[in-house]
Design a binder for these strands. Structure first.
Lengths: 138, 138
DNA sequence: GCCAAAAGTTAGCCCCGACTAACTTTTGGA
DNA sequence: TCCAAAAGTTAGTCGGGGCTAACTTTTGGC
């Protein structure tokens, strides 16, 4: 409860959407072989103009590369971020399912939660998934 | 992975800080009997001007009441939000500790996570805390 | 009781994430 | 092939959350 606790929370926010986007771009390239802005408008429930703003910012930050009217590609950094983000997301999602949350809710909640999970917590979740529940002390 | 998934995530954001603030205000009134802006500047690692902006917004939204240069009070709605937020926070924090996360990390991570946890997931966490781990099916 | 320091307020700025509206470029079907 | 619809771009607006700087009000110690 010490001060500065919230600074991390805020910094998380800064990259949250970037992570969601690169994750989605990577998935789209996997599935469709190509990445079109319009799909993200649909998926993220925003307008195509908003997607464009994000893509511009992602490019500014070196995560994607694109040219006007051309499909979007991930840079090496973008691919790296997408991969780690995806792994984190999967662990959280599977963990939620493991504690009895429905697949649908687990999918939704893990989207919001994954960005706030520290390495330590992620490891704890992974440990449960791999080795079962820790000894109950109560 | 259907569309609209992110809409909830976004809406969460809108009230996240409001929840953090009323939670902190309630805690401060509990502990100190009074609530001063300056403490929040410290606790949330923002300037006092920023705190003022938030307080103005909380008042606009009917969660707090204050007069110029006077201490801050929670409205009935503010108290309700603080209570439910606090309960949610506690469940998440205790749950993280239960899966082996350190108290310190649990405290930090629960701050970020609590706002993204649905009722269903919260119930699942509470169930684990109250009744132990669900049967392992793997 | 006074006056400086602490606390609170106000104004003005920035960036982000969203929007609408109007425009340009690609595209694909008749 | 051509042209309308679909996709993408650009400009302008708004509110949120942050900042600094300059101001006013409280306060507390001498």
């Amino acid at each position: 409860m010490a001060k500065k606790v919230h600074q991390r929370t805020r910094n998380d926010h800064a990259s949250e959407i970037a992570e969601d986007y690169v994750e989605a771009i990577a998935e789209a390239i996997d599935v469709n072989g190509i990445c079109r802005s319009i799909d993200w408008a649909d998926r993220f429930a925003v307008t195509h103009a908003t997607v464009n703003n994000h893509v511009a910012r992602l490019q500014r930050d070196g995560l994607v590369h694109t040219e006007p009217y051309q499909p979007i590609e991930l840079t090496a950094a973008g691919k790296r971020l997408a991969t780690t983000s995806r792994k984190r997301h999967d662990i959280v999602r599977l963990f939620l399912e493991a504690i009895g949350v429905s697949k649908q809710t687990a999918s939704v909640d893990s989207e919001g939660i994954e960005h706030h999970v520290s390495r330590e917590t992620l490891d704890a979740m992974k440990h449960v998934l791999d080795h079962g529940w820790p000894a109950r002390e109560a």
